[in-house]
Amino acid sequence: MADTAVEFSGWAAKKNWGPETPLEKWSYNPPKLGPNDVTIAIDYCGICGSDLHTILPGEKGGWSTQSREEMDPVIAGHEIVGKVVEVGSQVKDHHVGDIVGVGPQVRSCLECDMCTSNRGNLCSKRTSTYNAKYHDMPGYKLCTQGGYADKIRVHEHWVLPIPKGLDPKVVGPLMCAGVTTYAPLKRFNIGPGKSVGVVGIGGLGHLALQWARAMKADHVVAISHSDKKKDAAQKFGATDYCDSSKPESMDRWKGKLDLVLITSFGNDTEWTPIIDLTKYDGGITCFLAIPSEPLKNIKAITMCQSQRMITGSFIGDPAVTAEMLRFAEEHKIAPQIEVHPMRHVNEVLKMQDDGKARFRYVLDNHA
């Protein structure tokens, strides 16, 4: 049920977001504080491409054919850092005053095979940080609301303490982009003797390069459709650069990479040449960014004859997220960010939509 004695306030999409229909200030009653819940006063919230996919019109956003007017208002934002201001009666690991982070998920069943094996991000009853219905609160009518707000209420399992060596301003993007790129590198045992390709040198890619280099991969190959980001890629840890618009550059790496991470793509991306960069008999192409259209022109016979693999990876469980935060602290890894006041969220979303982010925007509630 809703906590009618409490109001949280944020910047909500009540219609499909655009110049004529900006996010508006909106207040709502959160779910009642449960025994395992934590209330967080939000200091910072990063902007993720997923936010735009949710609030933009269907064809452009890509994640919904429904009009926002047919759905609940939604406060986007799932790269959250703030201070604990309230805890439920059974919460033991978080205390008022702690600086904590929240990523793209706020609940799961905690009982299924996925949840009990540190894969709660794959729980069939997972609840996203915003625009999702609560599986365990049938009496609460609103969808979840995210981080473009003053506060958020989250199950303790999905609240992460922030290591003291990390600047809270940079942690928000780590809670989504960070773990999204870190988790597959760990799962596929990237380290000495391995070679990694990263397609796209943006908000995800610039972190993937840093992780792979810190893991001591032999080759960390930045893959982009021009030479424009070559200098930036080298700054973030790339040992080599591949211009995918040049056949000779692609041929140089054909069949040589253990893992290729797809962190961004174009509408006209040809996937077969990308997959061909991976090694025969076990090379992996892993999707992190999500094309809105089905993959085309991938022939099963070529996959059979090469024994390459195509897979995907989806954010991360709290265990791998906590490990990622410690790794970032140890190796001094951080996203490159640009900070703007929360009240300027509509202007910042416009810059994000126009592709101007270099490399991650963060909204500040106190600026």
Rank of each mutant, 00 (worst) to 15 (best):
E293T: 03
M324E: 12
V320M: 05
D317E: 06
S313V: 03
R308G: 02
D317L: 00
K296L: 07
P294Q: 08
K299L: 07
E323C: 03
G316A: 15
I301Y: 15
C304D: 11
T321Q: 08
P294A: 07
D317I: 03
I310A: 07
M303R: 11
P294F: 00
E293P: 00
S306Q: 06
A319N: 11
M324K: 00
T311P: 01
I298W: 11
A300M: 14
P291F: 08
G312S: 12
F314Q: 02
S306N: 09
S306T: 15
A300H: 09
L295Y: 10
P291G: 08
T311V: 01
E323Y: 07
M324T: 06
T302W: 14
C304Q: 12
C304M: 08
A300E: 13
I290D: 10
I310Q: 07
M303G: 03
I301K: 09
Q305T: 06
A322C: 06
A300L: 14
M324L: 11
A322G: 04
M324D: 13
P318T: 05
Q305S: 07
Q307R: 15
M324F: 05
T321H: 01
D317C: 02
K296M: 08
Q305C: 02
S313W: 01
P294N: 05
I301H: 15
G312F: 15
C304V: 13
P318I: 08
D317W: 01
I298K: 06
A300S: 15
S313A: 09
T321D: 01
E293I: 05
C304E: 03
S292W: 04
Q305E: 05
T302G: 09
A300T: 14
K299W: 11
K299C: 09
A300W: 12
R308C: 00
G316C: 03
T321L: 00
M309Y: 14
L295T: 04
E323Q: 12
C304L: 10
Q305D: 07
G316H: 02
I315Q: 05
T321G: 00
I298H: 04
A319I: 02
P318M: 09
D317A: 06
K296I: 05
F314D: 09
K296P: 01
I290Q: 10
I315T: 10
K299F: 11
E293G: 00
G312A: 13
S292N: 14
S292F: 11
G316M: 09
P318N: 11
N297A: 13
M309L: 15
S313F: 05
T311Y: 05
A319S: 15
